[in-house]
Nucleic acid binder design. Structure first.
Length: 562
DNA sequence: GCCGTTTTCGGCCCGACTGTTTTCAGTCG
């Protein structure tokens, strides 16, 4: 429901912006939309324990509208706006160069309500008759309307990372390069790449990209900014900065927007100014060469990019109480690996070889078992072979399994079968569309099973945007904490499950986590850093993560049930 | 529409770029 309300707020913001009476109302609605999306739980659950008005950026007016939507499924103000402008705002807004003002103008003057009507009007020549719609803008709209659908999508982190590596190579002439934005914050999906460069001329960039055949479309090329669409339809914005601006640029373009606005509130209070070039008192530069310097001048500890989301990090930085977030080097073992005995491609001995190179201290396998729509579950005789292989590798290996959670709760193998494994992950692989109540009961019941040590990819979501089960997470998290059952943070870039908001909520309820690669071959083991990034976005320290503890302590916490 | 260690009113983050203008509006991040 959060998404539904956020969408409505964004459209209200668009319409208010187009009508243009008070320029500060639209951002208020947009901020409220962001806050709802970052809430970590459904507004209906949140409402039971808290008041919306206590959330930052949400006042009486917007709180009333949220409650109105929960009660009636509608927001009156929005319904009236829809009558006045029966327009597909969300769709039209995705077209580049088209914002609220132009959308309203197109509707008022030509009655255009959606993309296909716009296309017809462009083709008939009606649009170029409008004041303010010159030949270049019309030509751009023609092109944009065709391409927009492709470049609007969000990308998985691994594709963004690969793209960044390509750009880094092509632009290696630069002395320094940083990929800022949501990529640096390790958000689960990335819309574009913000590329910051040092020691190179802005005018050199577009030619270098063109020479490397990386420009599908040049959007703009100015004195301080170059924007292109790359061949994979990802947008890259590239900007060059000086050495004494570098930290300010990194800070500014890493965001998030909400974090930066909150930071600027502090700055304004001191009578200073903060932009992408530095922190200034009048003309005097107080800081700018390093991010640390900027935060320090503001009386704050440096804040890791992953938690710059205006979720309380600035207050804690002021009090020097930021958590020391988990790092990739803290990971002591992988806890979710498939071998060749289920649907993995590699033998245990090869997984172990790589584990040693990665400086792990142990591995936990998690081959599929059971009878619910699973590719090639491990058999009893294969389990014996795997045990023998594990005994031979001279490296600590827990032999585990990934069992399926039944529709009615519990897992699809018996207690006797489960007992044969050292480590049992229970995962939802079916029944994604059960009701919220059924889903909640199903997970609660599953956690009553005596052998389960972890819940795998708990929401079942697949990115960039597919199903995530609906459940009332609070009682589930409470039971996980109580029963010493870990929640997995699945590091696959198309899962990153749990999502960050739920991680934070679970942590606050005392839950412990296990970051698993879910690798199906040695190649798949290198995704661990994505899982660590996700854990950091959920404010986790190494104390929160089982596989940062060492095997002995982890087993103790699990109750020695091995 | 939100918010408060100058304020319950009067502020609100800030700059770049393009296109359509002839000094600025709209979009974007």
């Amino acid at each position: 429901m959060n998404q539904e309300i956020a969408d409505i707020f964004n459209i209200i913001a668009d319409i208010l912006a187009a009508e243009g009476d008070n320029a500060f109302r639209p951002p208020a609605y947009r901020r409220a939309a962001e806050v709802l999306l970052g809430l970590g739980e459904d507004v209906r659950d949140y409402q039971k324990k808290h008041k919306f008005i206590d959330l930052p950026g949400i006042g009486k007016n917007i709180a009333d509208k949220i409650e109105e939507y929960i009660e009636t499924g509608k927001i009156k103000v929005y319904e009236e706006m829809k009558k006045k402008y029966p327009v597909d705002f969300a769709g039209l807004n995705k077209i580049a160069d088209l914002g609220p003002k132009r959308i309203i103008k197109l509707y008022n003057e030509l009655g255009i309500r959606n993309g296909s009507e716009l296309k017809k009007a462009l083709e008939s020549g009606a649009v170029e008759q409008l004041e303010g719609f010159g030949p270049k803008l019309v030509a751009n709209l023609h092109k944009n309307i065709e391409m927009t659908a492709d470049w609007q999508k969000r990308f998985l982190l691994d594709e963004a990372e690969y793209t960044a590596d390509v750009l880094r190579e092509v632009l290696k002439k630069a002395k320094q390069i940083e990929f800022a934005g949501s990529f640096r914050r390790r958000k689960d999906t990335v819309g574009d790449l913000d590329v910051l460069l040092l020691g190179i001329k802005q005018a050199e960039i577009l030619p270098m990209l063109k020479k490397a055949d990386l420009v599908k479309k040049a959007i703009l090329d100015g004195e301080r900014k170059t924007s292109v669409i790359l061949p994979n339809n990802m947008q890259a914005d590239l900007r060059v900065f000086d050495k004494d601006e570098w930290g300010a640029a990194c800070q500014y373009f890493t965001g998030s927007k909400e974090h930066n606005i909150a930071l600027r509130t502090l700055v304004v209070r001191k009578g200073w100014k903060l932009n992408e070039y530095g922190l200034f008192k009048g003309e005097k530069r107080l800081a700018g060469a390093s991010e640390e310097g900027i935060y320090e001048k503001l009386g704050l500890k440096w804040i890791p990019p992953e938690i710059r989301e205006a979720r309380g990090e600035i207050d804690l930085a002021a009090k020097n109480q930021l958590p020391k977030l988990v790092e990739e080097k803290d990971i002591k073992g992988d806890v979710h690996l498939h071998t060749n005995y289920s649907d993995g491609r590699d033998k245990l001995v090869n997984l172990v070889k790589l584990a040693k190179i990665m400086k792990y201290e142990y591995l936990c396998t998690a081959d599929h078992v059971g009878n619910l729509q699973v590719a090639n579950p491990i058999t009893a005789s294969e389990l014996k072979k795997l045990r023998a292989e594990a005994a031979a590798v001279n490296f600590p290996v827990l032999i585990g399994c990934e069992a399926n959670i039944r529709k009615e709760g519990g897992i699809d193998i018996s207690d006797q079968e489960a007992e044969k494994f050292d480590w049992v992950i229970a995962s939802v692989h079916s029944g994604f569309r059960l009701s919220k109540e059924e889903q909640t009961q199903r997970l609660l019941k599953t956690m009553g099973s005596p052998h389960i040590k972890a819940i795998g990819h708990p929401t079942g979501r697949l990115l960039p945007a597919r199903y995530s089960i609906e459940a009332d997470w609070e009682p589930i998290f409470r039971k996980a904490a109580d029963r010493h059952i870990a929640l997995e943070i699945n590091a696959q870039p198309d899962r990153l499950d749990l999502p960050d908001g739920l991680i934070k909520m679970a942590k606050d309820l005392g839950v412990k986590f296990a970051i698993g690669s879910d690798a199906h071959s040695t190649d798949g083991m290198d995704v661990m850093h994505f899982g660590v990034g996700q854990a950091r976005r959920g404010w986790l320290t190494k104390d929160d993560v089982l596989n940062c503890w060492g095997l002995k302590k982890m087993i103790e916490w699990l109750g020695g049930r091995l």
